[in-house]
């Protein structure tokens, strides 16, 4: 059984909102990426998405974009992402996912990427700019299935019924729904219409729903509790890292996550 399914069974049994957190591989350094993921697990995070830095991250706001830029400046390579996950796999039990832009996957070789990711212990891939229409040329979903990786589809408030229906056919593991029409980034308040959107999503998807984009506070988590299965926190954690001195990163990430988790 894929680790993602297993973890989802656990959160369901415990009747709580799962938490997925996000790191940019190589930000602020590869060593820190390794430490931060371990801290995330230790403090009750259920899933970690490791973003492979890319020079042109289309769906990301300033916070994550700048983290990607900085990781690339540090010399982070795609291979480093595989290496760090391989090392982590020996130490953490929670499912790890790769978030990448399609050029990273394509340039690496789509099958080679999926095979390699699976081999180092990745449980799922989030590749937002690989839409279902291009499957015929790319065989991305095919290789995800072949190597037992969940193909996490990302949908948004602008997704029409037709798009929800089409994506439902390929989505696996869980579906990632963005809390607003926009790019990544922490916000003060959640879109009040989010519950209506989520109802629509649930009409089409029987698999669990994760909600991300703009989630940064305990109140956000509380608001999602009844309507989603997983909350995704990305930019907010990077902002915690940005504001921390090097030696305080672990401590501050820990207290930030603990605070978020107090919702349960």
């Amino acid at each position: 059984m894929n680790k993602i399914d297993k973890r989802l069974q656990k959160t369901k049994k415990e009747k709580r909102l799962g938490l997925m957190t996000h790191v940019v591989v190589g930000y602020p350094s590869l060593a820190k990426t390794f430490d931060i993921v371990k801290i995330m697990e230790k403090n009750g995070v259920d899933f970690v998405e490791l973003q492979i830095p890319f020079s042109d991250p289309l769906a990301d706001g300033t916070t994550i974009m700048k983290a990607c830029e900085s990781a690339l400046k540090n010399g982070t390579k795609v291979k480093d992402a595989f290496d760090v996950v391989e090392k982590l796999s020996g130490e953490v039990k929670i499912p790890l996912l790769f978030m990448a832009y399609y050029n990273t996957v394509f340039k690496y070789g789509t099958e080679k990427f999926c095979k390699g990711a699976s081999a180092v212990g990745i449980a799922g891939l989030i590749v937002p700019d690989m839409p279902i229409e291009e499957e015929q040329c790319e065989h991305f979903d095919k290789y995800c299935r072949k190597y037992n990786l969940k193909n996490i589809k990302v949908l948004s408030p602008s997704s029409t019924d037709e798009r929800l229906e089409k994506n439902e056919k390929v989505a696996s593991g869980f579906v990632y729904f963005t809390a607003r029409q926009g790019i990544t980034g922490a916000k003060d308040t959640l879109d009040p219409k989010i519950q209506i959107y989520l109802k629509k999503v649930k009409k089409y998807f029987s698999i669990p729903v994760a909600v991300g984009f703009g989630i940064s506070k305990r109140e956000h988590m509380r608001a999602l509790q009844q309507h989603a299965d997983i909350a995704v926190v990305g930019s907010a954690i990077i902002e915690v890292i940005n504001k921390s001195k090097d030696q305080d990163i672990e401590k501050n990430v820990r207290s930030f996550i603990k605070n978020l988790k107090m919702v349960n």
Binding site: P131, S156, S158, R163
Partner: peptide, 21 residues
């Protein structure tokens, strides 16, 4: 076909842009 020129072109964008395109 759907904006493909041989192997080139296409519409490789996040889902949130697809309705607009």
């Amino acid at each position: 076909n759907k904006g493909h020129f041989g192997q080139f072109g296409g519409r490789y964008v996040p889902e949130m842009l697809i309705p607009a395109l």
